[in-house]
Simulated assay, not measured.
Amino acid sequence: MLLKIILVFLLGMVLIGMVGKALFPGALTGAMRRKGLKPPVCGRCGRYVIGKTCACKKG
């Protein structure tokens, strides 16, 4: 019984994936292309900037 439940769940996930790929074919490639953007880096110390200012400028 548990095996049937697992198989139905996996088949449902495959079906959802196929429908999603048919409706939004370029969604994943667009997200992967946007990964090329680089996060902001502090020019003074080289660390990543979280928020508006770097931690080296606070103290």
Rank of each mutant, 00 (worst) to 15 (best):
M1Q: 09
M1I: 07
M1K: 10
L2D: 12
L2V: 11
L3A: 09
K4C: 10
I5Q: 15
I5L: 13
I5H: 12
I6H: 09
I6T: 07
I6K: 08
L7E: 08
V8T: 13
V8E: 13
V8D: 12
F9W: 11
L10G: 00
L10R: 08
L10I: 10
L10Q: 03
L11Y: 11
L11R: 09
G12L: 13
G12T: 08
M13A: 08
M13E: 10
V14S: 00
L15M: 14
L15G: 04
L15R: 09
I16L: 09
I16D: 01
G17W: 11
G17M: 13
M18Y: 13
V19G: 11
V19P: 06
K21G: 09
K21Y: 12
K21P: 00
A22Y: 12
A22G: 09
A22I: 15
L23E: 10
L23W: 14
F24R: 03
F24Y: 10
P25S: 02
P25M: 02
G26N: 05
G26V: 01
G26D: 05
G26I: 03
G26M: 07
A27S: 08
A27Y: 02
L28E: 04
T29K: 12
T29M: 07
T29C: 01
T29G: 08
T29L: 04
A31H: 14
A31E: 04
A31G: 14
A31Q: 12
M32T: 00
M32P: 00
M32G: 00
R33V: 01
R33N: 06
R34P: 00
R34Q: 11
R34T: 03
K35I: 10
G36E: 15
G36L: 15
G36V: 15
L37N: 06
L37M: 08
K38R: 15
K38G: 01
P39L: 07
P39T: 08
P40E: 07
V41E: 02
V41I: 11
V41T: 08
C42N: 03
C42M: 04
C42W: 03
G43E: 08
G43C: 09
G43R: 05
R44Q: 07
R44I: 11
R44H: 11
C45F: 03
C45A: 06
C45V: 13
C45S: 06
C45E: 05
C45R: 03
G46R: 05
G46M: 07
G46Y: 06
G46V: 07
Y48N: 06
Y48V: 09
Y48L: 15
Y48S: 11
V49D: 03
V49N: 01
V49G: 02
V49C: 09
V49M: 02
I50M: 04
I50R: 07
I50Y: 09
G51A: 06
K52Y: 03
K52I: 05
K52P: 01
K52L: 05
T53S: 15
C54G: 04
C54A: 01
C54W: 00
C56L: 08
C56T: 00
C56G: 09
K57T: 15
K58W: 12
K58N: 07
